[in-house]
Design a protein around this nucleic acid. Sequence first.
DNA 1: GCCAACGTTGGC
DNA 2: GCCAACGTTGGC
Length: 139
Amino acid sequence: MAYWLFKSEPSTWSWDDQAAKGDAGEEWDGVRNYQARNFMREMKIGDRGFFYHSQKDKEIVGVVEVIAEAHPDSTTDDDRWQCVDIKAIGPMPTPVTLDDVKAEPRLSDMVLVNNSRLSVQPVTDEEWRIVCEMGGYND
DNA sequence: GCCAACGTTGGC
DNA sequence: GCCAACGTTGGC
């Protein structure tokens, strides 16, 4: 299983919005960046991801699961753009902030720190484990 | 609210 | 195919 990170500005689409969709989940649409799209194409059903609030909060607030693999993005007719569907699994008991991530030497290679503009990112197994530990999240 | 970084667009 | 111009993102 692979791990990912999904970034969203909470005023546009927040963790609460995602959680309200329940098991039905929601398209991760609106991505107009090739790198981010390519990562979504690699995702498989059952992959897990962090849900990150950008801008004001700057923290990892929850865990999501991929429930549909890449398909056309319904918000555009441009067939270049695809997206996956994700559902909320559970909140981070203690949200892990960007400052927390930066302060943890073992997370210094996280894409979140080094390429802050990429909205869909891969997360390594080790990074996943460390962030879950920091956030008090147990599978 | 500013601005640096980055990615995309479009003219040549 | 290059590159300047432009728009967007997101941390500060």
